[in-house]
Amino acid sequence: MTDIKPRTINYMQAVAEALILEMRRDPDIYIAGEDVGKFGGSFGVTGPVYKEFGATRVLDTPISETAIIGTAVGAAAAGLRPVVEILFVDFLPIAGDELFNQAAKIHYMFGGQVDCPIVVRTAMGAGIGAAAHHSQSLEALVCHIPGLITIAPATPYDAKGLLIAAIRDNNPVVFLEHKLLYAAKGEVPEGDYVIPIGKADVKREGADVTLICYSAMVRQCLASAEALAAEGISAEVLDLRTLVPLDKEAILASVRKTGRAVIVHEACQTGGFGGEIAAVIADQAFGSLKAPVKRVAGPDTPVPFSPALEAEFIVNAEKITAAVKALFAE
């Protein structure tokens, strides 16, 4: 073997690469969204895709979220594979009917006659001073609707492999990209590869406690695990990667091993996806638990604008570490 240099790219480039590779492979894939074409995307994700495929396959839409997802449903039913962009997840509810009532249900409702292979890419999360309408984490809403797949990758490698999987899957997928991760770097192979939907990944092995997380919180959990190690606590970091379908086996295996679970998400706690994970553990790993299952989640508030309050809103490594230590103090 000669020295093949591992290639490092960022999360945004990884997403673009997945789009390009899949569009080369399958002419039925098109992209639609606001300023995704000529402008290159408001976060800059789709610029390279437009460069290669132009306006026939990368379509700039008016400010019409309802039509972006609504037409994707019809186009998918008619045989295309739409990969559409909703700039911020906060705008997803604008197309609530199209996503929750149409995309999610037509396969089931019509007795399996028609598939709805659409991917909705959207940016989630706080941390850029964008206030209440541009900072939410709404994955729990999506996870609650049967028929939708929800993916929230944390690394460039996972983003690329999971987006390729999402595009190839015949179900509607909501693909959540965290805006704070766009610049995150990591090693990513050049060609195409698939990361299976519904498979969690142990990002760090540990023996005393499992930190269950996804999206931007994986980084925070890794940082916390590092801090905990210095205090003699060995934390395993389990990155769910896909929320629905949930990799219950991976959760249970890890919790049975460590005996403790701390679930971490940025989204507000009440009605958050962490409650579902906790229920799975309580139901199927109760006998292995050495401590109560804990959640470290956002407070039940909108995301405030003021940097002083936004910093307080966001879950970070310190808060996770404190929660874990409290578990061992109990």
Partner: peptide, 29 residues
Amino acid sequence: GRVDGYCRGKGGSMHIADMGHGMLGANGI
């Protein structure tokens, strides 16, 4: 984002509002 702002710093530029002047808010959507 300061406490003396119209929205006590919670809204910022995109959500500035002043009910005292019948101003029902700027809006992020």
